[in-house]
Amino acid sequence: MNHAIDFQSISYDLLTITSRKKTLHNQLFRVESGKVLLKLGKNEYVFNAGDAFWLPIECLMSLTILPNSQLSLVKLSVRLADQFPKKAGKVHLSPLSKALLDKLLHESDLATVNDLLQVVRREIIELQPKLAQTPECLAISKWQPKTDSISGELALVLLVREARKQRLSGTKLGVICDNLFAGNKEQLQLLSQSLLGNTELD
């Protein structure tokens, strides 16, 4: 990143799955719309529209961002000497922080953006991230193919994510189709196309 603090608003039309890796920056996320799954260790945490979460630098994690989601992201460089929170987790934003992020979503003047981000930076120092397993989090963490503990779009997302994981590990499409989709190749291709934008689970 070129600046010590950077703000982005990112829209995801398709299912987006990041690889498991350590974060290079301190990061504050707010879900503007949609749903995000954060995997830390063996557990997954669910964040819906209006939720915010913090990821410190060197945090080993992966994200699953559902289609038609929008995220606001504040990145803070490792060069900053501030005492930012050391733990990952959900955070409760102050009214001021919420107003600042709302303003940043629509502000185009660079000088104003930089001024707003300096206030956000001070607000972040006061955050107290916490991790809690809600019933939905527990259901996702324990989810296995061919179970009906989760339904709707989320169930399809988890199924396609598992298929993609197997594909990336070298399993052939035909085997994945047999194991996860009862041999229904058309269903596999349709779901892959609608969620990932291709039929090859890439």
Rank of each mutant, 00 (worst) to 15 (best):
K98W: 02
L100P: 06
L101R: 05
D102I: 00
L104F: 05
L105E: 14
L105C: 13
H106W: 09
H106Y: 12
D109N: 15
L110W: 08
D115R: 02
D115Y: 02
D115E: 12
D115A: 00
L116D: 01
L116K: 04
L117P: 01
Q118C: 05
Q118S: 04
V120I: 13
R121I: 00
R122D: 13
E123V: 07
I124F: 07
I124E: 01
I125V: 15
E126K: 12
Q128T: 15
Q128K: 15
K130V: 14
K130L: 11
L131M: 12
A132V: 07
A132L: 10
Q133L: 15
Q133W: 01
T134R: 12
P135Q: 06
C137P: 04
C137Y: 02
L138Q: 15
A139Y: 07
I140S: 05
S141K: 06
S141E: 11
K142C: 11
W143C: 06
W143Q: 06
Q144A: 15
T147W: 07
D148G: 02
D148A: 12
G152V: 11
E153V: 11
A155D: 13
L158E: 03
R161W: 06
E162H: 12
A163T: 05
R164Q: 15
K165N: 12
Q166S: 11
R167D: 01
L168E: 14
L168V: 10
S169R: 14
G170F: 10
G170V: 09
T171C: 12
T171F: 11
K172D: 13
L173H: 01
L173C: 00
L173I: 06
G174K: 11
I176K: 04
D178Y: 00
D178S: 08
D178Q: 11
D178G: 05
L180K: 06
F181M: 03
N184P: 06
K185Q: 09
K185F: 03
E186K: 02
Q187D: 09
Q189V: 00
Q189T: 05
L191H: 09
